[in-house]
Amino acid sequence: MTKLTDMKREKDSGQAQWEYLLEVEDLKTYFITKAGTGKAVDGVSFRLKKGEILGLIGESGSGKSVAVKSIMQIVPKPGRIVGGKVRFKGEDLLGDAKAIQRVRGKDMTMIFQEPMTSLNPVLTIGRQMTEGIMLHLHLKQKQAEDVACKYLEMVKIPNPQEILKRYPHHLSGGMRQRVMIAMALETNSSLLIADEPTTALDVTIQQQILALIRELRDRLNMGVIFITHDMGVINEISDHTAVMYCGKIQEYASTREVMKNPLHPYTQALIQAIPRIDTEQEELHTIPGSVPSLLNLPAGCSFSNRCQYACEQCKNETPELYDTGDGHFVRCWRYADTSTKEG
């Protein structure tokens, strides 16, 4: 069994030093259809350092998935990135058409929600694992297979040699997700984007995957963006948390801060909605109203139609992201005067 400490990470040599692994600045991705323009991501900004796990939470339709797909530039049509900057290791990926090809799948990798359908059913595991290695690391078939086996061991899959010859339908959901993680790591990537990787798995497997990701982050010092709609998972895995709603980040802080002191009414509602086993609950908390259609967002704050504190200003003017100190940002009029504007 190869020790993880044997794996050496290559330092970037000869490149300008950068402070943040990933910087997203005012990212806008719209879906332009005949029915109207859906503003799926409407001015999202955040930063990520090496070795940091950022949790991105929100309901379905909040834009979290589209945001990370925009970073990878795999937004499905008719979506288009219409504005903003995405800087990876200091380089603007949106500026140059070839930039994304240099890093996608190599230095910046992604795993997906549905392990059952995310692997190609007619190609062997071996083929699907080695093609990335051969392409990005320029290794030959045999060497690529060795690397693949090493990573399969790392994600705790037994008999990696055998698995390489199998097809996806021979593996369980949990194993497939591990294979996907192995595929995402094997090119020595610096940034792993995980789009709800545990949602489709049962709870025990979920725990194993989360533990695995944490361990890998510790050893390999990777940056991770972890998307989920489950506050409990956020609490377990992420260092920082960004709450998204209707295409905008509504609150951002360290996870401990967000859990202890949620400021945005939406965040508060989300935390309240977590079912607890330690206290008696008669009813699960729900948030009244429903998520507005992206084609038909309310004027003003997008949460205003469901917020208990909503006032006239909330309904008419869109609040900015305000810094309330200690790196805790919130997009709500209630904190506008007590803070410095962030943007």
Binding site: M72, I74, P76, Q101, V103, R104, G105, K106, T109, M110, F112, E114, T117, S118, L119, N120, P121, E131, G132, L135, H136, M180, M183
Partner: peptide, 17 residues
Amino acid sequence: NEDYIVTAVAKGLRKPS
């Protein structure tokens, strides 16, 4: 339109492949 094609793109594979 299948998911595994998205995976392939995310892996940075070239278009012919």
